[in-house]
């Protein structure tokens, strides 16, 4: 064996070793295993284009909220208000559209509300040093309460708004294979687009990479001259932007604003982010991992219904997956420390 061959072999071994130790690799395998199992058990209903399209489209909102959650987890934060802020932003946009305001100013108002909530969260966590759990729990309650008071708990429809707005999220773009049309809804394309771009930026763009350093060791980040406060608040603002995108898509797809949107979404987002590799201790997380985490939860939920599982156990199953993921995360953190 030549030196070159040995080097190639060593490189290959290192690559395999890195791959095997990667969270994403295992998540891909687990997702594939779930897909194969469901495909074998319910081939007609599970392995259909309609089912895949529905699973992927309907997990779009959870993907966006989980990306929001991942962003704050990276900087050692937490955001329990993602679902409530989504509802508030949706309600504000829907009410403005209902009252005849043009689409773009209405959407910008929704963005402003989401950013305001994110800024308050970030400010109280970063500047005042209050636990993120407490701050965002308060925001969760306040945003949902405000949305409920604004709407008295009722749907806000906007029949006078331009029709393109209430159609665009479900508008399908696709291709024909034979007689079959394979349409992909705009909401899925937009979600995949913004998630992909953000994932690449988070992995490669230095200003965003700094969030990992901050989460890993806030003290070291501060000593190295980083503007840690600004970076921490920025994470909450970025999170708010993803929440707003989810709110826009949800409002358009359902043609209503609703104060009860996003109930329990924070738990699903947290579960997906942690399953995907984000740590409650900060400093880690990836958008691909988060996407795979959401996919896993969506597949479990889909399989549960396809197999006509008892609805009483549905939430418990998701909860059990979360507990396992948090347990694995705790074990990983413990090992890293020791």
């Amino acid at each position: 064996m030549t030196i070159t061959e040995r080097t190639i072999e060593a490189d290959q071994t290192a690559l395999v070793s890195r791959l095997v130790s990667s969270r994403q690799f295992w998540l891909i395998l687990i997702n594939l295993a779930v897909i194969c199992t469901l495909g074998a058990l319910r081939p007609d209903s599970f392995l259909s284009w309609i089912n895949f399209k529905a699973v992927l489209s309907l997990m779009s909102y959870d993907v966006l909220l989980a990306v929001a959650m991942t962003t704050v987890l990276i900087v050692r934060g937490l955001d329990l208000s993602v679902g409530s802020v989504l509802a508030l932003s949706s309600v504000v946009m829907a009410m403005l559209l209902r009252d005849g305001y043009p689409v773009f100013p209405s959407l910008l108002a929704g963005l402003a509300i989401a950013l305001l909530c994110g800024f308050i969260n970030g400010l109280l966590v970063v500047k005042a040093g209050i636990l993120p759990f407490l701050v965002t729990l308060g925001m969760m309650s306040a945003a949902r309460g405000f949305a409920t008071v604004l709407t008295t708990g009722q749907y806000v429809s906007f029949p006078q708004a331009p029709r393109w707005f209430s159609r665009f999220a479900r508008q399908e773009f696709g291709f024909h294979i034979g007689d079959m049309f394979y349409g992909i809804p705009a909401l899925l394309l937009i979600t995949l687009g913004v998630t992909l771009v953000y994932g690449l930026l988070l992995a490669n763009w230095v200003p965003l990479r700094r969030m990992f350093y901050l989460g890993e060791s806030p003290e070291a980040a501060k000593l190295s001259g980083m503007r840690t406060a600004r970076l921490g608040i920025s994470a909450y603002l970025i999170s708010a932007i993803f929440v707003w995108i989810a709110a826009v898509l949800m409002t358009s797809a359902n043609k209503i604003g609703y104060a009860n949107y996003g109930i329990s979404a924070e738990l699903r987002a947290l579960a997906a982010a942690v399953i995907g590799g984000a740590s409650l201790a900060g400093g880690s997380g990836s958008i691909l991992g988060t996407f795979l985490g959401v996919l896993l939860l969506a597949l479990i939920g889909n399989g549960f219904v396809l197999l006509n599982g008892n609805p009483n156990w549905q939430q418990a199953t998701i909860g059990a997956v979360l507990i396992i993921a948090v347990g694995v995360d705790a074990l990983r953190t413990f090992r890293a420390r020791s």
Binding site: A54, V305, L306
Partner: peptide, 9 residues
């Protein structure tokens, strides 16, 4: 989500 899956199944 769950109703779509229910109708598929």
């Amino acid at each position: 989500t769950v109703n779509t899956a229910m109708l598929q199944a």
